[in-house]
Amino acid sequence: MTDTPVRPDAHTETTTTTAQRIRPERTLSEVAAEVPDVRRKRRVGPRTRRLIKHLLLIGFGLIMLYPLLWMLSSSFKPNEIIFREPGLIPSEIDLTNYTAGWNALLHPFSHYLMNSAIVVMGSVLGNLISCSMAAYAFARLKFRGRPLWFAIMLMTIMLPIHVIIVPQYILFSQLEWINTFLPLIVPKLLATDAFFIFLMVQFFRGLPKELDEAARLDGCGHGRIFLRIMLPLSLPALATTAIFTFIWTWNDFFSQLIFLTRPDMYTVPIALRTFLDATSNSSWGPLFAMSIVSLIPIFFVFLFGQKYLVKGIATTGIK
C-alpha cells in the first residue's frame, strides 16, 4: 500500500476541476486513469483506505450473496407462501421446514449427511495421496514417454461424463460394486481425477529446483524428497485439492445418483433432489432448509481449510 506516484503529468491534473473531469467528451478510461491520482492528492490515510476496502468487500459480498440470502429467508417461510411472497424478509420465522425436511425422507437427514461424509472423506484421502504422487512423477521425474502420458492424463477429463457413465456402470456392475461407495471412492485412490494431478504438477514446478537437487546430493531418495520437501512446501496445493475434492464430491449428483440405488445409501445431493417433483407438488421449503443445513459443513470446512491455502513458502520464509 506504499505506492508512489510516477505519472510525469501528475501536476497538470491538480488544475482539473470536478466539472471538467466528467465532461462527457472525455473517455471513460481517461477519467478512470485519474482517479487514483486524485485520491492520492487527498492523502487518504491507511485507516480510511482500509475502511473503504471493507465497505467495498461487504457491499460486493452482499450482492454476491443475495441469492443465498433469499434461500435462507425462504427456508423460514411456509412452503405455500414462498412464491406468493417472494420478498427477502420473512413475515415470521417458521422452523417447520427444518423439522419436516429433516424427517421427510425415509431416513433422518443425518443419515444422508453421514453417507456423504463417508464418500467425501474417502475421496479427499484418495486424491491427496494418489494425485500428489502422480504429480511428483510428472513434475520432477524423467521417464520415457512422459509427454505422451501427460497428454493422455489430460485427455481423460475431456469427455463429458454422460457418455462414460454407462460403460462405467457396466464395469462396476460386473465388479458388483453397484450400491456400495466403492465406485465413488476407489477411482479417487487410483488418481483418476486428472484435474488435481495437473494442479499439483503446476505447484511442484513452481518450487525451486535447487531444493531437491541439494537434497539429492545429501543422498535423499525420491521418496524422502517427496515426503520431506515437496509435500510440506505444497501445503496450499494440498489444501486446494482437499477443499475442492470435498466440495465437488459433496455436490456431485450424477454419478452418485447412478451408482447408489438403494435409499439407505443415498447421499445429500440425491436426497435433496427427492424433495422436488416436476410432475406434482414440490417441497421447496424443506429443500431450501436442508440445502442450508448441507451448506453448513462445507462452509466450515472452507473456513477452517482456507488458512492452509495461504501458508505458502512465502510465509515460511524459504527462498
Binding site: 505447484f203 518450487l207 496450499p236 489444501a239 491455502l309 495461504v310 505458502g312 512465502a314
Partner: peptide, 8 residues
C-alpha cells in the same frame, strides 16, 4: 490465492 503465496 494459493498461487499468490508462492510469489516471494
Amino acid at each position: 490465492l494459493a498461487g499468490l503465496r508462492q510469489v516471494p
